[in-house]
Design a protein around this nucleic acid. Sequence first.
DNA 1: CATGAATGAGAATTCATTCAT
DNA 2: AATGAATGAATTCTCATTCAT
Lengths: 204, 204, 204, 204
Amino acid sequence: MGKLAEKKKRKRMALLDAAYDLFTSKGVNETSISDIVQGAELAKGTFYLYFKDKSEIYTELVTQKAAELFSVIREQLPGDGNSSLEDTVVQLVDILVDMLNADKALLEFIAKNLRWGVFHKVMLEGGNEVSDSFFEWYTKLIANSGRKFRNHNLMIYMIVELVNATCYNVILYEEPVTLPELKEELAKLIPVIIRNKEVVDKAE
Amino acid sequence: MGKLAEKKKRKRMALLDAAYDLFTSKGVNETSISDIVQGAELAKGTFYLYFKDKSEIYTELVTQKAAELFSVIREQLPGDGNSSLEDTVVQLVDILVDMLNADKALLEFIAKNLRWGVFHKVMLEGGNEVSDSFFEWYTKLIANSGRKFRNHNLMIYMIVELVNATCYNVILYEEPVTLPELKEELAKLIPVIIRNKEVVDKAE
Amino acid sequence: MGKLAEKKKRKRMALLDAAYDLFTSKGVNETSISDIVQGAELAKGTFYLYFKDKSEIYTELVTQKAAELFSVIREQLPGDGNSSLEDTVVQLVDILVDMLNADKALLEFIAKNLRWGVFHKVMLEGGNEVSDSFFEWYTKLIANSGRKFRNHNLMIYMIVELVNATCYNVILYEEPVTLPELKEELAKLIPVIIRNKEVVDKAE
Amino acid sequence: MGKLAEKKKRKRMALLDAAYDLFTSKGVNETSISDIVQGAELAKGTFYLYFKDKSEIYTELVTQKAAELFSVIREQLPGDGNSSLEDTVVQLVDILVDMLNADKALLEFIAKNLRWGVFHKVMLEGGNEVSDSFFEWYTKLIANSGRKFRNHNLMIYMIVELVNATCYNVILYEEPVTLPELKEELAKLIPVIIRNKEVVDKAE
DNA sequence: CATGAATGAGAATTCATTCAT
DNA sequence: AATGAATGAATTCTCATTCAT
């Protein structure tokens, strides 16, 4: 709350913003520290007061952007307990894909970099408020469904990777199909993935 | 057959080999032209006799390695007409995953770069013997099944991206599941993807 | 006045000086940026802090040296209003030729590069103090003569090019005549050029 | 006349032609040996069978082109003995300027490089048929005029340099005057230069 | 004679990082 | 804390020249 602390935060943000703009427009490798500080309208040396090197600001950005994305998605998801687990996940994916379609720079940035390793770290391991609450939300979602699943992680892993991997080309190049076609396909596959993992009571 | 032509081919190969080793061990961006020619034991200028720049040798490598991979897979696939389409594709994926598991450098190289755009270009558009014959093989496979499908491309797209995206972490880090578990999951999902696209006779 | 600003000026000067020495001794094309920074005892990268490339430092040098030259000449010219226009210009040329004779590196540098385009830019278009005052001086000179001329520019153009073109070989190789002989010839021709352009009153 | 000798001559010519095209279009420094042999459709090594290096082919070209130019001019000059020396030289300059105006690549090449040193060498010292006959022609011209001159060389030197120096900018940029205006001016000055050098009999 | 593959020195330029102010 | 001038290693790419075929 101190003026100085706030000033520092603003500079940090300026650096992150400038870096994101440059990373998404020119590419990470083509962006130099010089470019970033210039974009942030700060002096070159100042960069090193906030980040160790380019990879540090990069990692922070991937994490931050992914967290932001899922935070927005959760807000948009209807929280009523009426939908089935399958419907909820399909809806989530629908919102996600629409958001990426609306912000192609974000798609490019996320899709290229959000391998499972990062996703896992951000979303499931927690460590910051956003991801902690995502993890909680996800756990509750499964619990509330009243159903049992083997290997939660594989379930979400397959879904995340499938969505991430398939929407990239479709959104950017409409290749090999259009986005509505892909969504339809995903809406069919996701329930299968979920049901595959369900532990069915023998009594049934 | 000329001695000179053979010498040239050998140098070209030396450059490609050196580049592949470096790309997979240090990463593409961390590899300089100097590194490559040093690895190939050639003079710096010689590189430019064979390739325009790093991106050219890189693209050629991705294409070549992908082509090699699929060429080997087809050889290993039993050609008997007894398996169903689903079984054949599942088998193919099985062999592919095993190969990537056995050659992690190749996995790293392929998985990072074999987005649909490249795959499509190499495998479906043809232009070189390997991909031409893969395309033929794939067309024949569908024809021989005696079944009809909407949107071949979406079918193979989903499968390729799903396999590519999911096996990366599993093979490299055994995360979030082991490879056998992933294979099992894929063996369940792939038939669903295929059947999703099948056009069923109304008579049925 | 700041220490830093002064330091920067000194480095800039060091680069210009080193470049001039090298350009005049080895030739422009044979001089590399490496040579220049080495001569200035600076690091290679420092060059690019002050100049975009070799052509920029080169252009600046031509401009600067030409401006310096004319600045010195004007100081040496007697400012009394007693000489005729012809005498003043002949005197100017005399001083100019003597200066070039005394500094052959300068002659070589100027003569090769001071085509009309550059001369015009430096001396007549202005943009820096030196050239502004030269232009003023030249305008005043004509005005004070009380005479009228068609096409000032052609007049000075012919004189500049004639002097520049003829003194090069004479000074450097004493070919095809000696310098005093050339001066005598110029002293005869210049008044003719001037009178050629004069507008004579019909009343005469 | 041998087939082989002729073949060699043709290759030599191809190199000279290619070099001239490149020198005038891209500039001498920007032209590499590679460019030249490529233009001549010969192998790289072949260049060195005909010329030591770039400067050798360059010098030969300047000489050759200047000789060609003057050879054409002499053909176009009316050989009748009726014109005065002044008129003949003015006419010569007129033809020369028109030729350079018609072939700007030639102007650029000649004007940039034909300092007195080269002109003298080509035109007055002789060494090849063309220049020998130019020298003869020039000597005869003066002899036939029946007049006597001090310092032939200074006379032609002043004229050559004046014309060369002044027509460059005028032809290429119409600056600072148009070509007809320059020609008019030269037609006035040249006779003055000639008469300046004439030795007048006291008896007259 | 002619070729053109190979060489490797050297040129221009960039950039992460340091450090005096 | 912040600045930005300075550094020099590293990179890409060019090119004259050689020499085996």
